[in-house]
């Protein structure tokens, strides 16, 4: 048995020999590029592993902000489509839902839009529009379309903020008129902007069919914004 144990250790005998012996000096180029920042400037593909977190977040936020500008000034650029992200839509959706939340604060009245309702309308609505555009033969990818539709809620979110401010001032006929104008304008803006981005990917003769669900989608959201009234 003792002999067997000795034998068993043999597989590892070779391993112990691997250890570096003293007589052979270690050779080779082991210098690490110490100043990666200087070299990185030249390369296009750079590593984001060793940059501060703040920089990463700021870069992403800047990208989101750039896309906001694209929505506000919808010239037919492909930046919104090329590098899509879902951070902006999430941000807008949550903001809109939070702004709409106050109406349903009291438990007795259920007519106000709830947080989950807004969330579901926005996401499922965009998914359905996207599927519809795919079915109609659009050449846009699934998440590109989601990104565009999500970013184009921004005018309506802005209108919601304006509505809350107007509602603080008072809720008479004048206030309703102001809200109506603001919401209508932002609804038109949203529809126009999303069509500008999405229409190019569709066959020319079917644009109307793609625009209709988009119109309905923003109309429902706009109508929710317009009919919002905070609880007393």
């Amino acid at each position: 048995m003792a002999a067997a144990a000795d034998e068993a250790s043999r597989p590892f005998a070779g391993l112990s020999d691997v250890s570096i012996s003293e007589d052979i000096p270690v050779e080779g180029d082991i210098s690490v590029p110490v100043g990666p920042s200087t070299r990185r400037r030249n390369d296009d593909e750079f590593s984001t592993l060793d940059e501060p977190v703040r920089e990463t977040i700021l870069r992403d936020l800047r990208a989101v902000g750039k896309k906001f500008i694209h929505v506000l000034y919808p010239k037919r650029s492909s930046a919104l489509l090329r590098d899509w992200d879902l951070w902006g839509p999430l941000l807008l959706c949550v903001t809109l839902a939070l702004l709409l939340q106050g109406g349903a604060a009291d438990s007795d009245y259920q007519g106000g839009p709830q947080f989950a309702e807004v969330f579901v309308i926005v996401w499922f609505g965009s998914i359905i529009i996207t599927l519809n555009s795919k079915l109609l033969g659009g050449t846009i990818s699934f998440f590109q379309s989601l990104c565009v539709l999500g970013y184009c809620i921004m005018p309506l979110t802005a209108a919601m903020a304006v509505c809350r401010i107007v509602l603080v001032a008072g809720s008479g006929t004048v206030s309703f008129a102001v809200r109506l104008v603001v919401v209508t304008a932002s609804f038109g803006w949203s529809t126009f902007a999303s069509t500008a981005f999405l229409a190019d990917s569709q066959p020319a003769n079917r644009k109307a069919l793609v625009v209709y669900p988009v119109f309905l989608f923003y109309f429902v959201i706009g109508w929710m914004v317009l009919t919002f009234s905070p609880s007393q």
Partner: peptide
């Protein structure tokens, strides 16, 4: 499903 969505305005 695509054939069922093959329509013109």
């Amino acid at each position: 499903l695509r054939p069922y969505f093959d329509v013109e305005p």
